[in-house]
Design a protein around this nucleic acid. Structure first.
Length: 761
DNA sequence: CCCACCCCATCCATAGCTTG
DNA sequence: CAAGCTATGGATGGGGTGGG
C-alpha cells in the first residue's frame, strides 16, 4: 500500500543546497522567534553541544533527500519533526536516517510519535516505531542527550537527566519498554484474530549523541541489545547487532502482508492522526471535572481563599484539617500555584523556563497514591493558568515536583544505594538518613495531600528535605482529613501519639499551626449525617468506639463561619452536634438534599434485579434523566463487580469498569482492551461506572449506589476489621454529592442504616 | 499489557491444652 | 480418656506496587 507523503515540499527542499535550505525554512524560523520555551543557553549542557537550529535543519533536509532516493521508504508524521524545534528533532532524524540507510532495498515504514489508536491517551506516543520488511518491528526511544546528560548507569542502562530536574531522572528504557509491551498485546490481538503469526518485535533506547568511547571513559558499559549508541548509526554495526536483540513476540513473520494490520493498529490508514486533533488527556475523570467546575465557576470561598493566598501559609509548618469534602485539594493546588507565581513576580524572572532559575524556590507536593499525581499536576496547572498575571508566563516545571511518597523514597534510596524496604518505612527512612539524603534541604516548601494516609514514619525524611529557617521553622504544609482514614494511621497528638511538633520540627509560632476548614462542598448534610452515624455505630448493638478514630469530636467545637461568598444555611451553628449518646448531626455542608435510601433484600439475585431497575429508571431521560456517567455503583469486592455489570447489561445499560477483572467464568465475550486501571479515569460519558470502593476513593458522583453492603458485615468479625469496614462504608457514602442508595442482603449493618435514615427523617 | 511480588485478612486444619 | 476450646501457621484470595 502506498501512503501519502508531502511530496511537493520534499522535492523542493531536497533540491536545495547550502544557504537555500535555510531560506526555505523561513517559516520555521518565524515559529522559532516566538521562542516560548526554547531551551537554549548554558544550563542546557546535558543536551547536544550543537547549536541545535543548524543541525536540526540540516538533518531534516538530509532525511528528506534520502527518503526521495529510497525506493520504498515511508515516514509518517514527518511534519511533527518540522514543527518541533529542539535537538531532539535532530536526534530523531539521525535515527531515521540510519534505519533507512541500513535497509536501502527493503520496504521501511517509520512512524514518528506513534500512537496506538485503540489505546488512545493511555499509551504515551513513542518517538519512533518502524516496520522493516524481512526484519520486524522496532520500538525506539531517542534521546538527544550527550554523555553529560547521563546521570548514572543501572544494570547497564543509562539514567538520563530530564528537564534538569535531579530527582526526575529517567530510565532510558522505561518508555520504550512499556510501549513495546502494549504494542505486543495489540499485535497479538490483531493477528490472533486473523490466525496469523505476528511480526518480530524489538525495543531499544537510542542515544545517537553518545559514543561507546564516552561510555568507556566513565568505565561503564551498556546492555548492547537494548541500549544503542552512536555506533548504531553505522550500517554494519546496526546489522550485526540485530541478531543479539530480544524478540518480544517470538514470532518470525516478516513479509509485507503484515504491514497492513500493523498500520491499522496505529490508525495509519487515515494519516496516523490529525495533527490538529486535540490531545485527549487522561484527566477526564468526573472528580476532575467537578473540581474544575468548582474552580472556574464557583470561585473559591472566602475560607478557601484566605488559606490559599495567605503568605503565612508557607511560612513555617502548618496542618490544615478539614471536614470531608471541604476542598482541601483545591486549596493545595491554589497555594502551590500562588507560591510559584509570587516567586516569579519577586524575582522578576519571566522567561527562564525550563531549567532552574536563580532565586526560584523548589516546591515538592507529596501524596500517597500515584493515581493522584497527574490529577494534582493538572489542578496546579489550571490554577496557575487562571491566575497568572502575564500570558507569557509558563508554569516552571523544573521548580515543581509532584510524586507519591513511597515512590520518591524509592528514588532516593536507589540514588544513594540504600536498600528500600517496602514493608518497613521506618527502616527505609533510617537507612536514607544515615546515608545522607540526596535532596537534603532542596525544597523550600513541601505540601502533603491526604496526610492521613501518609505513614508517620515518613515525616523524618520529609523534614530533612526542606531547610529549617530561623524563626519560622520548616515550611511543611499538611492537608489532613482524619475521618477518611482508611488505613488506620494514627493521628498525631491523639491517643498517645506524639504531637505534630514531633513530625514537623520545632514550631516557634504554634498559634498558627492548626487551621480547620469548616464548610463542606461535596456532600449534603443528609448524606454526611447518615454516613457519620453509620461510621460511629450510633445504632449498633455495642459501641464500636470509633468516635475517637474519626476525630469527629474535634469538630463539635468548631463553628461554621459566616461567609459572604456562600449562603450557608447553618452558619453560626457548630459543625457537628451531638444529639444523643453516640448520635451526631452534621451541619457543615452547604447543601441540603434528599435522604439516603436503604434497600435490604433476602437474596442477592433480588437485590441485583432491583438495583438494575433503579439504575435504569435514574438514567431514563423520561424519568430520572441523569447522565449515566453521573452514576457510580460501588461494591466491596472485585468479584461483585462482574455480577453488577451483568445485571446492568441485562437491561442494556452500558457500563464502565475502571478496575481490572478476571476473564472467563461467566463465559462472556472477550472484554475490550482495558488499560492499566491505575491510569484510567473513573468516569466515561454515557456509561454507568461500576467500581470497588477502594478504587473509587477520591472520586465523586452525583448518584451513588453501594451494593453488597452485607459483605461489610458479619458475626465473627474482629473489632478492628469491623471498624475498617465501617470506615470503608463511610468512604463509599461520601463519594455521593446528592443521591445515595444502599443495597444488600438483610443484615445488622443494613438495619442500622435503616435506623440512621429514619432518625434523620 | 501481563506478571511477580508484597501486604493484609480470612479460613481451615492441626496441635496443645483444659475439662468433665 | 475423650470431648471441647484456643492458639498457631499454612493456604487462599483480594488489593496494590514495580518491572519485563
Amino acid at each position: 500500500m502506498s501512503l501519502p507523503i508531502p511530496l511537493a515540499r520534499m522535492v523542493f527542499i531536497a533540491d536545495l543546497s547550502g544557504s537555500g535550505i535555510e531560506h526555505s525554512y523561513g517559516w520555521l524560523r518565524r515559529r522559532m522567534s516566538f521562542g516560548e520555551s526554547l531551551p537554549t543557553g548554558p544550563q542546557e549542557y546535558e543536551y547536544t553541544e550543537m547549536t541545535g537550529h543548524d543541525e536540526t535543519l540540516q538533518k531534516l533536509a538530509e532525511l528528506e533527500r534520502v527518503l526521495k532516493q529510497h525506493p520504498d521508504a515511508d515516514v509518517k508524521n514527518l511534519s511533527r519533526l518540522r514543527t518541533v524545534h529542539h535537538p531532539h528533532t535532530a536526534a530523531v532524524c539521525k535515527a531515521i536516517l540510519a534505519l533507512v540507510r541500513a535497509f536501502p532495498d527493503r520496504k521501511v515504514v517509520v512512524l514518528v510519535e506513534a500512537e496506538i489508536s485503540e489505546l488512545g491517551c493511555k499509551a504515551r506516543p513513542e518517538d519512533i516505531v518502524a516496520w522493516i520488511e524481512g526484519t520486524g518491528v522496532f520500538v525506539l526511544e531517542v534521546k538527544s542527550h550527550t554523555i553529560k546528560g547521563i546521570r548514572r548507569f543501572e544494570n547497564n542502562v543509562p539514567q538520563v537527566v530530564y528537564h534538569g530536574q535531579e530527582v526526575a531522572d529517567v530510565d532510558l528504557l522505561d518508555q520504550p519498554r512499556s510501549f513495546a509491551y502494549k504494542l505486543k498485546a495489540e499485535l497479538e490481538k490483531t493477528f490472533d484474530g486473523d490466525n496469523q503469526a505476528a511480526p518480530p518485535l524489538y525495543f531499544a533506547g537510542w542515544m545517537p549523541n553518545v559514543s561507546p568511547e564516552d561510555v568507556a571513559q566513565l568505565s561503564a558499559s551498556v546492555a548492547l541489545d537494548k541500549v544503542w549508541l552512536s555506533d548504531m548509526l553505522e550500517r554494519e554495526t546496526f546489522l550485526a547487532r540485530l541478531p543479539r536483540m530480544k524478540n518480544l513476540t517470538g514470532a518470525s513473520r516478516t513479509e509485507r502482508t503484515s504491514l497492513e494490520a500493523f498500520c491499522k493498529i496505529f490508525g495509519a490508514t487515515s494519516g496516523l492522526r490529525r495533527a490538529s486533533a486535540p490531545r485527549a488527556t487522561q484527566y477526564a475523570s468526573m472528580g476532575h471535572l467537578i473540581d474544575r467546575k468548582n474552580l472556574l465557576l464557583k470561585r473559591l470561598t472566602k475560607e478557601q481563599e484566605d488559606l490559599a493566598f495567605s503568605p503565612n501559609l508557607v511560612r513555617g509548618p502548618k496542618v490544615i484539617r478539614g471536614v470531608a469534602g471541604s476542598g482541601k485539594t483545591i486549596v493545595l493546588a491554589n497555594a502551590v500555584a500562588e507560591t510559584l507565581l509570587r516567586a516569579m513576580a519577586d524575582a522578576s524572572v519571566q522567561q527562564l523556563f525550563p531549567g532552574p532559575g536563580e532565586g526560584m524556590p523548589q516546591v515538592l507536593v507529596l501524596c500517597f497514591n500515584r493515581a493522584l499525581v497527574p490529577y494534582l499536576l493538572n489542578l496546579i496547572q489550571e490554577c496557575f493558568e487562571s491566575r497568572k498575571p502575564r500570558s507569557d508566563w509558563v508554569l516552571p516545571a523544573s521548580c515543581l515536583k509532584v510524586i507519591n511518597v513511597d515512590r520518591y523514597a524509592y528514588w532516593l534510596a536507589r540514588k544513594v544505594g540504600v536498600e528500600y524496604h517496602r514493608d518497613d518505612v521506618a527502616r527505609t527512612v533510617e537507612g536514607l538518613l544515615r546515608a545522607g539524603v540526596p535532596d537534603q534541604g532542596k525544597f523550600q516548601h513541601v505540601f502533603i495531600d491526604e496526610g492521613q494516609d501518609v505513614d508517620l514514619s515518613w515525616y523524618r525524611l520529609i523534614q530533612v528535605l526542606t531547610p529549617d529557617q530561623p524563626e519560622l521553622g520548616r515550611s511543611i504544609i499538611v492537608f489532613y482529613d482524619e475521618a477518611q482514614n482508611l488505613y488506620g494511621v494514627r493521628m498525631p497528638g491523639v491517643g498517645g501519639m506524639p504531637p505534630w511538633k514531633e513530625y514537623l520540627g520545632a514550631v516557634p509560632h504554634s498559634r498558627g499551626l492548626h487551621s480547620v476548614m469548616r464548610v463542606g462542598h461535596r456532600n449534603t448534610n443528609q448524606i454526611l449525617s447518615f454516613s457519620f452515624n453509620l461510621l460511629l455505630g450510633a445504632f449498633a448493638e455495642e459501641n464500636p468506639q470509633t468516635a475517637q478514630f474519626a476525630g469527629i469530636s474535634e469538630f463539635e467545637k468548631e463553628v461554621i463561619p459566616h461567609d459572604p461568598s456562600i449562603d450557608h444555611p447553618h452558619a453560626g451553628k457548630p459543625c457537628v452536634e451531638k444529639i444523643d449518646d453516640r448520635q451526631y448531626r452534621v451541619n457543615f455542608a452547604v447543601q441540603n438534599g434528599p435522604l439516603p435510601s436503604v434497600h435490604p433484600y433476602l437474596t442477592e439475585e433480588e437485590m441485583l434485579k432491583e438495583l438494575a431497575q433503579e439504575v435504569e429508571r435514574v438514567i431514563d431521560p423520561k424519568r430520572g434523566n441523569v447522565e449515566p456517567s453521573d452514576v457510580l455503583v460501588m461494591v466491596p469486592e472485585k468479584r461483585d463487580v462482574q455480577s453488577v455489570v451483568a445485571a446492568l447489561a441485562d437491561r442494556k445499560i452500558p457500563t464502565h469498569v475502571p478496575v481490572k477483572l478476571e476473564e472467563a467464568e461467566t463465559g462472556r465475550a472477550r472484554r475490550t482492551s482495558q488499560s492499566d486501571p491505575r491510569d484510567t479515569g473513573c468516569f466515561v460519558r454515557g456509561k454507568v461506572t461500576v467500581s470497588t470502593i477502594k478504587s473509587a476513593k477520591g472520586y465523586t458522583a452525583h448518584v451513588c449506589h453501594i451494593a453488597y453492603v452485607h459483605r461489610l458485615d458479619g458475626d465473627a468479625l474482629k473489632p478492628e476489621t469491623r471498624q475498617k469496614y465501617r470506615a470503608q462504608l463511610h468512604v463509599a457514602c461520601t463519594r455521593s454529592s446528592l443521591f445515595l442508595d444502599l443495597w444488600g442482603k438483610s443484615c445488622a449493618l443494613l438495619n442500622e442504616a435503616e435506623k440512621a435514615r429514619t432518625a434523620l427523617g
